[in-house]
Computed example of a mutant assay.
Amino acid sequence: MTSPATDPMTATVGRLRAVGCVFAEDEARLLLSAARTPDELVAMTSRRVAGEPLEVILGWAEFCGLRVAVEPGVFVPRQRTAYLVEQAVALTRPGAVVVDLCCGTGAIGAAIAARVPGVELYAADIEPAAVRCARRNLEPLGGRTFAGDLYDALPGELRGRVDVLLVNAPYVPTDEIAMLPPEARDHEPLVALEGGPDGVGVHRRVAEDASRWLAPGGHLLIETGEQQATLTAAAVSDHGLRPRVVTSEELYCTVVIGTLPAQVAPGLDDAGP
């Protein structure tokens, strides 16, 4: 019989609790299921104790019912972002052109593709590690991933064709980066976290050119912070989109949805035929 002192589960939970892991039992179960040998379990637990994200250690994250590959140096998908996916699915028709901008692992795009049949899926990120990871997750779904800064990464043929533009860009104000948990601050790229002095710098850049890429009646969805929502909505409105702000108290997530007005066909007006 294994004594409590040598039981792998007990020992792993004890090490995780000692450094303040809130869900020590759940994390320990995942580490035990992933480790192939006792030595590997000890090594993986040591990485977690040192502050490395659990998802990076495992090599995957659960997101919207999917197992999404996660590599070192890539932003780990947050569970709150499931609310962005929920809002996007409600606006996405089968066969729609969908772009996951600032895609990280590509988890958002993958979740949309899993729920809406036949979408034409594109993703882009400025971080090479993110692009590599997103390709792993999206190519099996028929998605295409590109490297570059925001819209510069996208094929020109998408201009004016995007039905749903999904953006989980950074929105942490510069002065608040130091207050992030070490697993984010020390293990995720700063470009995926920092949103400038007020947290909305990248959102403004996204909003500025969104109308050039959206199809008439298309939608831009940006995850933002509760404190940044008014500023994000203003940026969207300033560039010709009709904004609305939706919030999930359960997931603690706020999303700004900007809609490009549908264009009136040439020769027609509100008076009718």
Rank of each mutant, 00 (worst) to 15 (best):
T10Q: 10
R93Y: 10
F75Y: 10
R67D: 15
Q263P: 06
G142S: 02
V246G: 08
G156P: 06
R48D: 06
A90V: 04
A124T: 00
G195T: 14
L30F: 09
F63W: 08
P38M: 08
G73D: 13
D198N: 03
A43D: 13
E27W: 02
R159W: 03
T37W: 09
I57N: 00
D152F: 12
T2D: 10
A82C: 10
A88K: 03
D100H: 06
A82R: 08
E62N: 07
A34L: 09
V172Y: 04
N168D: 11
D186Y: 14
G217M: 07
G51R: 05
V85S: 06
L54D: 00
A50K: 02
T12E: 00
E223P: 08
M9I: 09
A215Q: 14
A35I: 14
V76M: 01
P189N: 05
V164L: 11
V245N: 06
D100P: 02
E40C: 10
G225F: 00
Y151S: 13
F23H: 15
Y122T: 05
T232R: 06
E71G: 09
L241Q: 04
V56N: 12
L84W: 10
E139Q: 09
L141C: 10
G199Y: 03
A124L: 00
E25C: 02
G65D: 08
T37R: 13
L193D: 01
P53M: 07
R47C: 01
A271K: 06
T105N: 03
R161A: 11
Q228R: 01
